[in-house]
């Protein structure tokens, strides 16, 4: 039940499909790489419809917001891949954002404020990790509650409104740095994702994450320290969300107590839709990155075309629904083929 990507056909013989590199059927190839084509298609369509879409300024803005979002969703990707859920990530980001803004406007310097924001991330990561991984309490309800706690404190810091900042300190300087034409932040996030991909594909860590989703008891019996692994994932999610919140404080030059709401749907959509790329419905970091770029392009382009917030909200909701549907459909297909 807490298993968000549960199998629809609980067959006992649902052994893992071996990575079928050779003999890839056209249909499978389409499913595996089709999403990347869709990402490119979105950018081409909007570039044709609105040439300002590919103006350097707009591209730069999209890269910045995509980088921050991708960072925030990294922990979530693996938590969902391991069959658990975290719905507090966006509120932790909002709280770390408000903590930084509150400290800076209260006279603290930026290094201290970022430490405060980071501390918040670690704290909430530890809280979720202890309750969900340590005590094995239901993940959804616990993270709803801890998320509401974080959101409530975030609102309390600003007494219910946002805090605007006059300086953006060293974080702002970091955001302004460029490597060639690319923003430094995008390069750093890309590097983090390369490392994450390596951990997911080449280290036992990644194998354990996917094995956990299949059968937690079996992984535990095999001697894998399951609770410690889940513990680490929840702490990671708290920390990356907090870092994203800190970056947003400098990027928006303000603390926004309600910034979480817009990242909530996007995060889950990115993880589930991204799961369609490469791995037939299993969340993975490259898929998440591609889906974040897709969503950023789609929502930015839709804004240029003059779509209202509500229309974009409907697009978000529909995409998430389509993503979930595709994941379940892909899984039943692969399992049927295996059992047939």
């Amino acid at each position: 039940m807490t298993d968000v990507t549960q199998q629809s056909v609980p067959t006992a013989s649902a052994a893992r499909r071996a990575p079928a590199r050779q003999g890839l059927q056209p249909g499978q190839a389409l499913m595996r790489y089709g999403f990347f084509g869709l990402v490119i298609a979105v950018f081409v369509v909007f570039a044709v419809l609105r040439p300002t879409f590919i103006a350097p300024g707009n591209i730069h803005g999209m890269l910045m917001s995509a980088s921050i979002a991708a960072l925030m969703f990294l922990g979530l990707t693996w938590i969902v891949a391991a069959g658990e859920i975290d719905v507090s990530f966006m509120s932790v980001a909002a709280l770390s954002n408000m903590t930084v803004a509150g400290l800076v406007s209260g006279g603290a310097d930026w290094p201290l404020a970022t430490l405060g924001g980071l501390g918040i991330g670690v704290l909430f990561g530890l809280l979720n990790a202890t309750l969900v991984a340590g005590l094995r309490l239901p993940a959804l309800v616990i993270t709803i509650a801890s998320g509401a706690l974080a959101a409530s404190i975030a609102a309390a810091i600003g007494l219910g409104t946002s805090i605007s900042l006059s300086t953006t300190g060293y974080v702002g300087a970091l955001l302004d740095m460029r490597v060639g034409v690319l923003p430094l932040l995008a390069v750093i996030v890309a590097a983090i994702y390369v490392v994450a991909w390596f951990m997911q594909e080449k280290l036992t860590f990644g194998r354990y994450v996917y094995a956990l989703e299949q059968n937690r008891a079996a992984v535990e019996e095999a001697g894998v320290p399951v609770n410690r692994l889940m513990f680490m994932l929840y702490v990671l999610s708290g920390v990356v969300s907090a870092v994203a919140g800190i970056l947003l404080a400098a990027n928006l030059s303000s603390g926004q107590p309600y910034l979480g709401t817009s990242y909530f749907l996007d995060g889950l959509t990115a993880v589930l839709l991204g799961g369609m790329a490469l791995k037939f419905g299993k969340p993975n970091v490259i898929g998440t990155l591609a889906a974040v770029i897709f969503l950023t392009g789609l929502l930015n382009g839709a804004a240029l075309l003059g779509w209202t917030d509500s229309q974009r909200q409907i697009v978000r909701g529909s995409l998430l629904l389509v993503g979930v549907g595709l994941v379940v459909y892909a899984r039943t297909r692969t399992h049927k083929r295996k059992t047939a």
Binding site: F264, L268, R312, I314, R316, G317, L320, L321, V328
Partner: peptide, 20 residues
Amino acid sequence: KLPDIVTTIATGGLAIGFSY
């Protein structure tokens, strides 16, 4: 057989969009 959590998050998001 869609997963309940994510599906209801999505339909809730849709409903908020419609309410505007």
